[in-house]
């Protein structure tokens, strides 16, 4: 696989509103490789979006990246730590869009209704590439064509509200790809779409990834999407990566009770790929009331009183690519088969 293009270590991002503190990301680590797809999965509110935004340093106001590192191998070979550089610096702006493209969850409200889509795509191109307005427009039309928008010469001058949800999400992908980044972060790109359109958008991402050797971070709460798309998986719960490994391992030999519960909530992975995760016992705790010890313990079937509610479980490496954060695996002798 070679060297990772992006390596995130112990990332912590907290929100500090007046009422308390929300540890939205609480020590997340993962690696991303060119040409491969990393799936980040977890229930809604687990900190997936905040993790992705922390990498681009565009976390909303009371939020702040507190600790950790995000090492990006830039096009020229330099390695920069995205956590260490100034969020407002020219270098950071260069990386946003230029090195890392971002596709957002809500295609409805993520585009301006007061500007044509061409205007926004051209802006994204010219921000990072020195091309004339005319060239940029031609490229914008090519891009729209590439992401599968019919009659792109006309669509380039239309407004986002004149397009269907699926087309808008294609425009979002075109925007993210405008400056030819090497990493694409897709944050629940298909959640707001109907089933047929979902499949088309995923297919589009896969095709572009193959063409451009893109590294993709695919964020979803849908195990079915992970099964279809990901090479490796990080399972997140309350800001922590609780289990990570190759997609086959996660699906066929899941170790963490949370991962197991996620998988159980799908009646049959193959028969019903896109059902929602609604059947895990209990619900995700309020952000201000994080349980002590292992944050999953109030909902865990394997909860060990006196251990799991006392301290946070450490990371255990089960094999070179498979890690889990759970007391069940702390001592190798006790490992469950």
């Amino acid at each position: 696989m070679g060297e990772p293009i992006l390596s995130v270590r112990d990332l912590e991002t907290f929100f500090r509103p007046d009422e308390g503190i929300v540890r939205a990301v609480d020590g997340a680590s993962f690696d991303l490789y060119p040409g491969r797809t990393l799936g980040i999965v977890g229930e809604s509110g687990c900190g997936k979006s905040v993790t992705a935004r922390s990498i681009l340093r565009i976390v909303d106001h009371p939020g702040k990246v507190e600790r950790g590192e995000a090492l990006l191998r830039r096009g020229d070979g330099r390695i920069v730590d995205l956590v260490a550089i100034d969020a407002k610096s020219a270098e950071m702006r260069d990386i946003r869009g230029g090195e890392i493209g971002y596709v957002f969850q809500e295609p409805m409200s993520s585009l301006s209704s007061f500007h044509t889509i061409g205007n926004q795509v051209v802006e994204a191109i010219r921000l990072h590439r020195a091309v004339s307005a005319k060239e940029a427009r031609d490229r914008a039309i090519e891009l729209l064509q590439l992401v599968g928008i019919p009659r792109p010469e006309q669509r380039v001058d239309s407004y986002s509200f004149e397009l269907s949800g699926g087309l808008r999400q294609r425009v979002m992908i075109a925007l993210a790809l405008a400056a030819e980044p090497r990493i694409l972060i897709a944050d629940e790109p298909t959640t707001a779409l109907d089933v047929t359109t979902q499949a088309q958008i995923l297919e589009l991402i896969r095709k572009i990834q193959a063409d451009r050797n893109l590294a993709v971070i695919l964020i979803t709460h849908d195990m079915g999407v992970i099964a279809e798309m990901a090479d490796s998986v990080s399972v997140m719960y309350l800001g922590k990566v609780v289990e990570s490994g190759p997609v086959d391992t996660i699906f066929h030999a899941p170790r963490h009770p949370y991962t197991q519960a996620l998988l159980r909530s799908i009646p049959s992975v193959l028969a019903e790929p896109r059902s929602r995760l609604t059947t895990i016992a209990g619900s995700i705790p309020h952000p201000y009331a994080r349980p002590p010890g292992c944050p999953f313990h109030p909902r865990c079937q394997n909860f060990m009183p006196g251990t799991c509610d006392r301290s946070a479980p450490p990371v255990t490496r089960l094999d070179p690519e498979h890690e889990v954060r759970c007391f069940l695996y702390e001592a190798p002798a006790e490992a469950v088969a």
Binding site: I95, R96, G97, G98, Y102, F104, S109, L127, M172, A179
Partner: peptide, 10 residues
């Protein structure tokens, strides 16, 4: 969200 999108574009 469109504001964040614009930021994410650099």
């Amino acid at each position: 969200p469109y504001v964040t999108t614009a930021r994410a574009r650099g």
